[in-house]
Simulated assay, not measured.
Amino acid sequence: MPRTTTTVLTAGALALATVTLTGCSALGDAAHDRVTSEASTRADLRSAPAWLPDDATAITSVSGTGGKESDTTPTTLVFTSRDGVTADGCTTTPRKSAPTMDVDGAPDVYAATSVLQCGGWSMTSAGSRWVAWTPNPGDGGS
C-alpha cells in the first residue's frame, strides 16, 4: 500500500477513535433526543429547582429534546445529598409515575411505593443518592 494511503487510513482511524472516545455521550444524546449535563455542586448550576438541597453534589440531568415548553420537557435529575429534600410544600404520595429519561446510577424508582412530590417533580432516594423526575402524572404534579 502506498505511504499516502496508509497515512490517510491512519489519520481516519485516529479521528474516528477520537470521536468515539470524546463524543460518545453527545452522539448518544443526539440519537436518543436528549441532552445530558453534569454539575459538581448545586452552586455550579445556572438554575436549580427550589427543592434541590444546598448540599447536592454529583448532579446529572437528562432532558428530552422533544418538548417545546419547559414544563412538558421530560427531565430526570440524579444527585447526592446527605441533608435530603426538605423543601416546604413537598408532600409524600403513592408513586404512580416513573422517569421518562434514564440516568445511569439512579436509585431504582420501581422499588419505591411512595415518592416525595414537589410541584411538578417526584423523587425518591436510596441512602443519600436521589432521583427526581418530571413530568410526574398521577403523583399530584403535572
Rank of each mutant, 00 (worst) to 15 (best):
M1I: 04
P2L: 04
R3I: 05
R3P: 00
V8N: 04
T10R: 07
A11G: 11
A13N: 09
A13C: 13
L14T: 03
A15P: 00
A15Y: 02
A17D: 04
A17V: 04
T18A: 15
V19H: 12
T20E: 11
G23A: 11
D29R: 02
D29E: 07
A30I: 00
A31P: 02
D33T: 00
T36M: 01
S37C: 09
A39L: 08
A39F: 14
A39H: 14
S40P: 01
S40Q: 14
T41F: 09
A43S: 11
D44H: 07
D44R: 03
L45G: 03
R46C: 00
S47T: 15
S47E: 15
S47I: 13
A48L: 11
P49D: 09
P49T: 03
A50T: 08
A50N: 06
P53A: 06
D54P: 01
A56C: 03
T57R: 12
T60I: 01
S63L: 06
S63P: 02
S63Y: 06
T65G: 10
G66D: 13
G66F: 10
G67D: 13
E69L: 15
E69D: 15
T72F: 14
T72S: 14
T73M: 12
T76K: 06
T76C: 09
L77P: 03
V78F: 10
V78P: 01
F79P: 00
T80G: 02
S81K: 01
S81Q: 01
D83M: 02
D83H: 05
T86Q: 13
T86L: 08
G89T: 05
T91V: 14
T92G: 00
T93A: 11
T93Y: 04
R95F: 13
S97A: 07
D102A: 08
V103H: 06
D108Q: 12
Y110H: 13
Y110D: 13
A111C: 08
A111L: 13
A111K: 15
A112N: 08
S114W: 07
V115N: 06
C118E: 05
G119T: 10
W121Y: 04
S122C: 10
S122H: 07
S122A: 15
S125D: 07
A126D: 15
G127D: 09
R129K: 14
W130L: 01
V131P: 08
T134K: 14
P135R: 11
N136L: 03
N136T: 12
P137F: 09
G140I: 10
G141D: 07
